[in-house]
Amino acid sequence: MDRIERPVAIVTGASRGAGRGIAVALGEKGYRVYVTGRTVREGDAALPGTIGATAAQIDAAGGEGRAVQVDHADSDAIAALFEQVADESGRLDILVNNVAALNDDLVKPGPFWEKSTGLVDILDVGLRSHYFASWHAARMMVPAGDGLIAFTSSFGSVCYMHGPAYGAQKAGVDKFAADMGVDFRGTGVAAISLWMGPLLTERSAQTLAEHPEQYEKFMAEAETPEFNGRVIAAIHDDPAREELNGQTLITAEIAQRYGITEEAGRVPPSYRAMLGDPRIPHPAIVA
């Protein structure tokens, strides 16, 4: 196991979308980034993007991209990913739990019983898978006394958004961050959940084209995934990172702490007033 000087990150579900942009932003900061997903050939998925293409973009940004095909529904495949990272890099600085099984019915109108039961797959790949990845990451980070586990989440944690399965997954990862944060106290490792705003991704572009009346206003002020990646990197580098451990943060708000903006200084809005406040955990601890 060779420890490298370059910081190391894993971004799950990084063939496209939020994961791709976050991974590229970490590449800008010089990270070796392991990007995971199932798509290795263009055209194999309904949306464009592959893990190899993301790895190449990381290289071009100044980092080192490593594409690893992983089916995050398979716990053994998740374990093998972390074994590979340990063997090749000897360290792990950031884990971004981003992968999620998103069904095409997600943004269709109507109650949950009129949609496919496939929507519940997000509780397997998007919740259960995050637990396994975090377990493996913690066993690398805690002995090193340093690390950040970040969950990509949204306001759907507390307001109705895309139905109960989506909402339960987002509420679940916020709770993961809160409770893992309790266990991480005093270890040098932190867990946070990030509420991202509307994102400029391949999927959102398709959704906007299909439902312009519903999403046009939101998307006019949308965030780039890279913006969220720069915030994650800044949180990891923050000497006061422990203050954020266990919290659910709104990216548009915490970015101001680090002076991070979009291109041309654009400041994405926070939707707190419109969509709700992050959950504040009760301080009671029942062991």
Rank of each mutant, 00 (worst) to 15 (best):
R139M: 09
T54L: 10
V70I: 15
S204W: 11
Y131N: 00
P143G: 04
D93Q: 10
T251K: 00
V99I: 12
P283V: 15
A205Y: 06
A165L: 08
D174M: 08
A67L: 02
A77Y: 06
Y160K: 12
D174N: 15
T187K: 03
P143K: 03
D2M: 03
A233C: 02
D44R: 07
L47P: 01
R6I: 02
R38I: 11
R66A: 03
I280P: 02
E83K: 13
D104I: 09
E223S: 01
P268R: 06
G19D: 14
M161F: 12
Y215K: 05
G43A: 07
A18F: 11
D59N: 13
G65D: 13
E216G: 01
A67R: 00
A79N: 10
A138Q: 06
V107G: 01
A165Y: 14
T261S: 12
G62Y: 12
R66P: 00
A150R: 07
L208I: 04
G156V: 02
T152H: 08
L26I: 05
N98Y: 11
S75W: 07
K175A: 13
A77H: 06
G276Y: 04
V158R: 12
P7F: 09
Q214N: 09
I10L: 15
F155G: 02
P212W: 07
K170M: 12
A56I: 00
M161G: 00
R16P: 01
S129G: 05
Y215N: 07
A86W: 04
Y160Q: 13
A101P: 04
D44L: 01
L81Y: 04
V120F: 15
P278A: 08
M141H: 08
T251V: 15
L102G: 00
G145H: 05
H162S: 10
V120W: 15
G65Q: 14
D174R: 07
H282R: 14
A168C: 07
G110V: 11
F227C: 02
A209M: 03
R139Q: 15
F151G: 01
N97H: 07
G110H: 14
H130C: 14
D76I: 03
I149C: 09
K217T: 14
G62S: 08
S270I: 06
L275P: 01
G30D: 08
T224P: 02
